[in-house]
Amino acid sequence: MCLESTPEATEEKRSRQAVQRAIGVQLQARADIDAQHEIERRRDFLCDIMQESGQTTLVLGISGGVDSTVAGRLAQLAVEQRREQGEQARFVAMRLPYGVQQDADDADKALAFIQPDEVLDVNIQGASDALLESLESGGLTFDDAGQRDFVLGNIKARQRMVAQYAVAGTRGGLVIGTDQAAEALMGFFTKYGDGACDVAPLTGLTKRQVRLLGQHLGAPAELVNKAPTADLESLAPQKLDEVALGVSYEEIDDFLENRDVSERAFDTILTTYRRTEHKRQLPIAPG
């Protein structure tokens, strides 16, 4: 008799499905969405937050990937709606390269599509390198070049957020994050770097759903379908997210949408989810 047909195998499958459902609920993921409704709902969410907070500016770094492209267009639609309501509102998009961005053309295409009110171009290489050099001058040592590069990658991510909050503080603004359910599930963000923000309009969306919103918004197909890369590692430029994660976004999305995934994918995702739990929580405090 095949293992899959035994009572033990059936119970194990039910247990795995229960885990998937529970995690999906926690991350606000849903299997089916109406793209146009989600676009309007998330645009209105940004409008409401601006009204409630009294802030007049939205700030977001544009990388050229689908997440920042979709979030950026939602931000621009939100501030335009606020202005139609007679309120002051502005969206500031930021280019935040480390030196020369290899996929700079994609960032340009994203900005052309988003049509932000203002674009600021801030190169973070000087600040990032200076901090690393100061740390080493202060006595910090690394096990090898790979560890040093990893630390520098997180410095880059945090330096980008430092720049965005500087603009937000100057303009009376809110910083937008691009975190969605797939990245949240895998903890695939830098704590207090790209994981830091005031508002996260893509929350709960799987990667394929972000792409769907991009399609409905009219984003360029090459950006909607672009293979995601965090591009934080200088020793491995343009390293694909799926290579770093060890699992595909298709499998991650299936997990979130409570669809069947392979045992290997399930184990990889669940192990990573548990290991990165601290990233999804507030700082630990005494009870």
Rank of each mutant, 00 (worst) to 15 (best):
T178Y: 13
L245V: 14
L245G: 09
E87M: 13
S128A: 15
R171P: 04
V199E: 04
Q85L: 13
E183M: 00
Q55D: 01
E84S: 12
A127E: 10
L46E: 04
A110T: 09
R208K: 10
E40R: 14
Q164E: 09
P220V: 10
F142Q: 02
G24M: 01
Y273P: 13
M50W: 11
D106R: 13
N123P: 14
D194N: 11
S15F: 08
G214D: 06
G204I: 03
L77R: 02
R160W: 08
T57Q: 01
R211L: 11
L74P: 00
E38K: 10
M50N: 07
D254K: 15
I62A: 07
G61P: 11
F150C: 00
A196W: 08
K13M: 11
V100C: 00
T141C: 05
F188E: 08
K191W: 15
R41M: 14
A78D: 09
L270Y: 13
V261N: 03
Y165C: 08
K226L: 04
E80M: 11
D117S: 04
G218N: 08
D117A: 10
I124G: 09
S134I: 14
L205V: 02
A244L: 12
D241T: 13
R95Y: 06
Y249C: 04
E242S: 07
D103I: 00
T178M: 04
Q81C: 06
G99Y: 06
A110W: 07
Q147G: 01
E233S: 14
D108Y: 00
R280W: 05
D198S: 06
Y192R: 11
Y165H: 11
E80P: 08
L111D: 15
A75C: 05
E136R: 09
R90W: 09
Q238E: 15
